[in-house]
Design a protein around this nucleic acid. Structure first.
Length: 276
DNA sequence: CGGCAAACCTGCGAGC
DNA sequence: TGCTCGCAGGTTTGCC
């Protein structure tokens, strides 16, 4: 499912297919996504040209030629992909169809409907309720250990939970939070405020490298994630701990076994020997 | 401030 | 084969 690397991969895949193309027709097949689809979605999009595609945390921002911005979040099970040609029959969970000049179709599919599609204008974007609280992008140049420990200062919550807090770091999800902590050898139980100095440098570096490797691999393909091209990723990032409960710790010869625990209602996978 | 559970939905794999 | 159960990548809300 879409965490930051998957969303980034989708944006990169969509750009060559979408930028510069006109939206001819937009069809909403059902409107009850996480937030209701705007009733004027089609009216505001049809006839517009796509100017650029950006990612903010796990949001896809599709900018159009009249300063309208199409905001897409994929939730847990969402996909946004160009339909292959010839087009297969629609799936029951294909909720919004964007027909492009030239005949291609962009399809938003989301079985669980935890995702959303909405509209904003360029001037509304900065203070938009979905976006304004988002923290620093972990791939930003400014993101480093010093930045990380400043963000965590005074926070008496386990580092694992803090990493998932989008108000602090925007874009990390459960998989990459687990993988980053493992790589940095930081215990998921450790209080966020105690992650500073060299440990914070290690963690910031681990977050960056894990995300960059995942993007380079085209996102890690789990159950229902498909790249914008509609194909499964060629390469699947090798996950060191996520989903690996009971397996020997892959990081070193510590002899530990990967354990699964629950923190804040989310699974955490870690090695108690390697991570301190 | 923070932790926790529940809510939103559907699909899938495991186990019986 | 077919049923039930548990679990899933996210986010928000409300309660203690």
């Amino acid at each position: 499912m879409p965490e930051l690397p998957e969303v980034e991969t989708i944006c990169r895949g969509l750009r060559p297919m979408l930028v510069g193309r006109d939206l001819i027709r937009v069809t909403a097949r059902r409107a009850d996504l996480r937030i209701p689809l705007p009733s004027d979605l089609a009216a505001r999009l049809e006839g517009r040209r796509v100017e650029r595609i950006d990612r903010r945390a796990k949001y896809i921002l599709i900018r159009l030629d009249d300063s309208t911005v199409l905001i897409v979040h994929l939730g847990m099970s969402g996909r946004l992909a160009i339909a292959p040609t010839p087009p297969p029959s629609l799936d029951p969970h294909d909720h919004v169809i964007f027909e492009l000049a030239g005949g291609a179709r962009l399809i938003y599919r989301d079985p669980r409907r935890f995702g959303l599609i909405t509209l904003a204008t360029e001037s509304e974007l900065e203070s938009h309720p979905l976006l304004h609280h988002l923290g620093v992008d972990p791939l930003a140049v400014a993101f480093d250990g010093g930045h990380l420990s400043a963000l965590f200062k005074g926070r008496r919550t386990p580092i694992k939970a803090a990493l998932l807090d989008q108000r602090v770091i925007a874009g990390l999800g459960n998989i990459y939070a687990c993988e980053s902590l493992f790589r940095a050898r930081v215990s998921p139980f450790r209080l966020a405020a105690s992650v500073a100095g060299r440990r914070a440098e290690r963690l910031a570096g681990a977050i960056r490298s894990v995300l960059e490797e995942a993007i380079a691999a085209g996102g890690s393909s789990l159950r229902d994630y498909v790249q914008a091209s509609g194909e499964l990723g060629y390469f699947q990032l090798r996950l060191a701990v996520y989903g690996c409960a009971g397996q020997p710790c892959p990081g070193c010869d510590c002899g530990g076994t990967i354990r699964r625990i629950v923190q804040g209602g989310r699974s955490t996978f870690y090695c108690r020997h390697r991570q301190r």
